[in-house]
Amino acid sequence: MSQKVEKLIDKRGLRLDGRKPDELRPIKIEVGVLSNADGSAYIEQGKNKILAAVYGPRELHPKHLALPDRMVLRCRYHMAPFSVQERKSPAPSRREIELSKVIREAVEPAVFVEYYPRTAVDIFVEVLQADGSTRCTSITAASLALADAGIPMRDLVAACSAGKVEDMIVLDLMDVEDKVGSADVPLAYMPNLGVITLLQMDGILTIEEFEKTVNLAIEGCKKIYAMQKEALKAKYVSVKEVEE
């Protein structure tokens, strides 16, 4: 990546890919894409291409880790070696271990974990191509895979980033904006309950800018939420057609 990137926002206030500051990248979602998994989802958000699968509820190994009053929710976020410009070693990096944890903690509030004691539910997220804000795109896909697996949930979790690029607060950062921009706030949200389940930030923001960024990210989550519901319905409508 060259250090000198052209201006990220042009005179008309548009971004490198022609988006307005509060515009999401094009999103394509498909639910139920893997036949072996209990639930799965594939999402494209800009150049992000991410596959999520859910296995379970199933028996937990090793058994002593099982909890008597709830399921154990596990998550593995992993990037394919070819998903980024320079080949990434397939061994899990510290970043991937942290992201696995925050993604799990972002979807867990949505799940009725107490319905399946002594079991495990595994979420596997594979980033096939990365273009910024992959943790958010992963959460959006993971929550759909959980729903597709029939795990009882309070709400879907939608996630979206917002940040500051050249003094402007913008929605849904892509890779260049994340790297060159001055702040990045990934956020996950349960729109029906109006609560935040993932919030991180790096960069520098004043408190006022921070509030504005969080609110913009929440608006983005609401738009993604509508698309998630469409995608879920689309699968079950097509199943019904096959039956008929």
């Binding site: 109006g194 790096d202 923001l205």
Partner: peptide
């Protein structure tokens, strides 16, 4: 100014 934020744990915030 805020320079880092991290939410943790399996709950949520408004």
């Amino acid at each position: 100014n805020i320079c880092a934020v991290q939410k943790g744990g399996s709950g949520y915030f408004t």
